[in-house]
């Protein structure tokens, strides 16, 4: 393998690793928006998941339990969003911001004793024989469990959404609430499930960030990944199959940022760090112009977005 190939492979792996937390959240927000609910609170849910995951891993020494704790924390916080905007019909954007504030505040509050602590996290996958496969081998040995699970979860969710009966009920609710109701679907329950699923995935994303990627806890450590995910859902066109390339946009920009920093490019790291946000914004705008022409938005969700007009 030439030096260039190795560098490229290394880049792809680091891009994958840095986009994994985002990919989890993105998949969750796709599920939530599929039932015609927008959840800006994923940012707070991620933070709750990151703290819970880190704390559980530190306490038990088992990163898998950390992931479970992260999922639980994300779901707990998202149930508030479900209560407010499905149960009480509050505005989804405002309710999401409330969830975000709570998640940020609670995780910062309870996270103080964990600042500066370190955990070991997962060991890289080393499935013996796979290592000897020429190109794929180096790939497989360098990715961690959360990366592998996220890559598998994306097509699985896509299959579930488009090929199963329950997936169909999600899509029906997202297209037209009243038609779904007329079909006998319990729409409020489906919407609440969509929000809770989003909570579980965003909590997982937060835990993947703190337990597997950075292996520490810092106040506000998600740095807008959840909000980026809300924007990238539109880029992925509400399609779990397209979630990986969409998440790689942010992750790739982030990996590029880190790489340029270490290779001594004379640009301020603060300016470089704007790159992931600006890249996400740019593709968001591009996909809006496409979506305006071609459609693809769940119709009920289009009504939510246009509600503010």
């Amino acid at each position: 393998m030439s030096e260039f190939d190795a560098a490229l492979g290394g880049f792809i792996i680091s891009a994958l690793r840095s986009s994994t937390p985002l990919l989890w959240v993105l998949l969750g927000e796709i599920l939530t928006q599929r039932v015609a609910v927008v959840n800006l609170g994923v940012e707070g849910q991620m933070l709750a998941g990151a703290l819970a995951g880190f704390a559980a891993t530190l306490a038990t020494g088992n990163p898998w339990l950390g992931l479970v704790a992260g999922v639980a924390a994300g779901m707990a916080l998202s149930s508030l969003h479900a209560l407010l905007c499905v149960g009480l019909k509050a505005n989804a954007f405002a309710s999401g911001l409330a969830v975000w504030m709570l998640g940020f505040g609670l995780s910062a509050f309870y996270g103080i004793p964990f600042v500066g602590q370190k955990i070991n996290g997962f060991q890289a996958l080393s499935p013996g024989a796979l290592e000897r496969i020429p190109i794929l081998g180096t790939f497989v040995t360098q990715i961690t469990p959360t990366v592998a699970m996220a890559i598998l979860a994306s097509p699985l969710l896509g299959w579930w959404l488009y090929r199963t009966r329950t997936g169909l009920s999600f899509r029906a609710v997202g297209e037209s609430l009243s038609s779904a109701k007329a079909l006998g679907l319990k729409t409020a329950r489906v919407q609440a499930l969509g929000i809770l699923a989003g909570g579980a995935f965003s909590g997982m994303g937060g835990a993947a960030l703190s337990v597997d990627y950075t292996r520490n806890w810092v106040e506000g450590m998600t740095q807008g990944r959840g909000l980026v995910a809300v924007g990238l859902v539109i880029v992925a066109r509400w399609n779990p199959f397209l979630a990986i390339p969409a998440a790689m946009l942010f992750g790739g920009a982030e990996a590029l940022t880190l790489r340029m920093q270490t290779s001594g490019v004379p640009i301020s790291s603060h300016l470089l760090h704007t790159l992931p946000y600006l890249a996400s914004l740019a593709v968001l705008v591009l996909s809006y112009t496409r979506a305006n022409k071609e459609g693809g938005t769940p119709a009920g969700l289009g009504a939510v977005f246009s509600q503010s007009q």
Binding site: A36, V37, C85, V86, K89, A90, N91, A92, E175, S176, L177, S178, K181, A182, Q191, I234, Y288, A291, N292, G295, G296, T297, A299, G300, L301, G302, A303, V304, F305, S306, Q307, Q309
Partner: peptide
């Protein structure tokens, strides 16, 4: 609005929007 609401007649879309739905509006309108 991302998508023209051509699939639904105007009016139904706004009535369905979660968050705008009055507590019992949907049931009455059914």
């Amino acid at each position: 609005m991302i998508v023209p609401l051509a699939k639904d007649p105007p009016g139904t879309a706004t009535a369905e929007a979660p968050g705008k739905d009055p507590m019992n509006g949907a049931a009455q309108a059914s």
